[in-house]
Design a protein around this nucleic acid. Structure first.
Length: 312
DNA sequence: ATAGAGACCTGTGTGC
DNA sequence: TGCACACAGGTCTCTA
């Protein structure tokens, strides 16, 4: 499920609750995620204070106060849910054993969609109990996600961090940067943008959306948006702008909720209502004065959605 | 070195 | 209603 905007949304939801808190308990209910949970995971984390919660590509990185780092990935279907401690005076009617429901103790998101349906607690694999009374539960039906531990000192050289490409938010992603990465590549733009070693954090949805915004065909060879001398063509500049724009807008919208994605506060993202091409096969292209109809193709075993008329 | 297919696992939607 | 099948936000591994 989660691409960069969803992971960043999760991070922003978790950070206020987790940063500065001590882990007072760790319940590993199901250790066989994509990779087995670390040896002695509970002992290594319990009693530690979470110094910061950061993101790199689609990874969440929790810095602990003993120099360890918890690397977490949501895979396709992972999510975190926060359960805040019951407010004084509030009655605790419901079952609180699952910790799956976020009580809207913060009445400060009135416009947000509250996600009432509780997740299947059978897929609650890891539960953090924090010194501030909050509970943070990791739920992942498909178990493609994982949690592993390493040391802060060697983090950059960790196999999961080494080789990760450019962060697409901020100023680093320019037409020139894309030109340098894509020069001479004969693979498709779709595959190049999906390659986490080049640009980090894009996934199937936002690659499709960015290519539509840049009016570039997903099938076009990546190297063709670069001049022979390695300068960015106008297409490379358009692509850089499109990526930054679509990711920024998606983060602003709280990510995209397909199926069961919710942020850590149990709220749905709403960027899915702004998809121009993703999952819109057979529907009209949204570009004014384009008469195209969105098509679906398969590239590298993944669905690609695009407008064959205005994306060249 | 690089690109595509398959694998991992569960849930959901569709069509017969 | 039941069943089979396709497909899903990721990425690692194997094969050409």
């Amino acid at each position: 499920m989660p691409e960069l905007p969803e992971v960043e949304t999760v991070r922003r939801g978790l950070a206020p609750v987790m940063e500065g808190a001590e882990v007072t308990g760790l319940d590993c209910r199901r250790p066989d995620l994509r990779f087995p949970l670390p040896e002695r995971f509970a002992e290594r984390v319990t009693g530690r204070r979470i110094v910061s919660l950061a993101r790199r590509a689609k990874y969440l990185l929790a810095d602990l106060d003993d120099g360890a780092v918890l690397i977490m990935h949501l895979g396709m279907s992972g999510s975190f849910r926060i359960a805040l401690p019951a407010a004084p005076g509030a009655d605790t009617t419901g079952a609180d054993t699952t910790g799956a429901d976020t009580t809207g103790a913060d009445g400060e998101t009135p416009g947000a969609f509250q996600y009432e349906r509780s997740k299947n607690a059978a897929h609650d694999h890891v539960v953090f109990t924090l010194s501030n009374g909050a509970t943070v539960t990791y739920n992942d039906p498909r178990r493609f996600g994982f949690m592993v531990m390493t040391e802060r000192a060697g983090l950059a050289d960790h196999p999961m961090m080494r080789g990760i490409g450019l962060e697409p938010l901020g100023n680093a992603l320019t037409g020139a940067a894309i030109a340098a990465l894509f020069q001479d590549r004969r693979t498709s733009l779709k595959a190049a943008l999906m390659d986490q070693r080049l640009i980090a954090g894009l996934g199937n949805i936002y690659v499709c959306e960015a290519l539509w915004r840049a009016r570039l065909s997903p099938m076009r060879a990546a190297g063709t948006i670069v001049t022979k001398t390695g300068r960015p063509r106008a297409e490379a500049e358009r692509l850089a702008d499109a990526i930054r724009d679509v990711l920024g807008e998606a983060i602003e919208a709280g990510g995209s909720s397909l199926r069961d994605y919710v942020n850590a506060d149990g709220e749905l993202g709403y960027f899915q209502h702004r998809f121009a091409v993703y999952d819109r096969e057979g529907e009209p292209c949204l570009r004014l004065e384009c008469a195209g109809v969105i098509e679906r193709a398969v590239q590298s075993n993944r669905s690609t959605f695009f407008c064959p008329v205005c994306q060249r």
